[in-house]
Structures are given as structure tokens and as C-alpha cells.
């Protein structure tokens, strides 16, 4: 029951991939700064590993929103 690939379906697929891809880039940029700071803090005080790790994954939400949006977009095709 493969869906017939039309231009519309292709555009939807591109939209979905942009949603995930661009948010992933955003997440990466955000985590870069936090990660660097967290490693710096850890060098000073090793116990901060736990907190640093948590802080670093906070922007991960962005890519998850992207994924949710991608799924919603893909639902258009069914």
C-alpha cells in the first residue's frame, strides 16, 4: 500500500525533514555553549558532572518539538 509519490507528498516530506533538521541544528547550537560552560565548571569542581549533564540536555526539547511537528505534518499524508 505504498503511497503514490506526488510533488505534494514530496513537499510534505521536505517540510517534515526541515522541521526535524533545523530544530536539531538549533539544539546543537544551544548545547554547544552550555556544554562548554558545563565542562569548564566540571574542571573546577568535579561533583558538578550530574548538574552539568542535565543542563546540557535541556535544549534537547527543541528537537523534540521539531519531531512532534514533523509527525503532525506527516499525518497529512496518512
Amino acid at each position: 500500500m505504498a503511497t503514490e509519490i506526488t510533488v505534494g507528498v514530496g513537499l510534505i516530506a521536505i517540510g517534515a525533514s526541515l522541521a526535524v533538521g533545523l530544530t536539531a541544528v538549533g539544539t546543537g547550537m544551544a548545547e554547544q555553549a552550555i556544554g562548554a560552560a558545563a565542562v569548564g565548571a566540571m574542571a573546577e569542581k568535579e561533583e558538578l558532572f550530574g548538574k552539568g549533564l542535565i543542563m546540557t540536555v535541556i535544549p534537547e526539547s527543541l528537537v523534540i518539538f521539531g519531531l512532534v511537528v514533523a509527525i503532525l505534518i506527516l499525518n497529512l499524508v496518512g
Binding site: 534537547e60 526539547s61 523534540i64 518539538f65 519531531l67 512532534v68
Partner: peptide, 9 residues
């Protein structure tokens, strides 16, 4: 709330 979508992801 949407952040919990990570459970799925």
C-alpha cells in the same frame, strides 16, 4: 507538556 513527547521520540 509537549516536552513529554520525548517519551515517544
Amino acid at each position: 507538556i509537549l516536552s513529554y513527547a520525548r517519551l515517544m521520540a
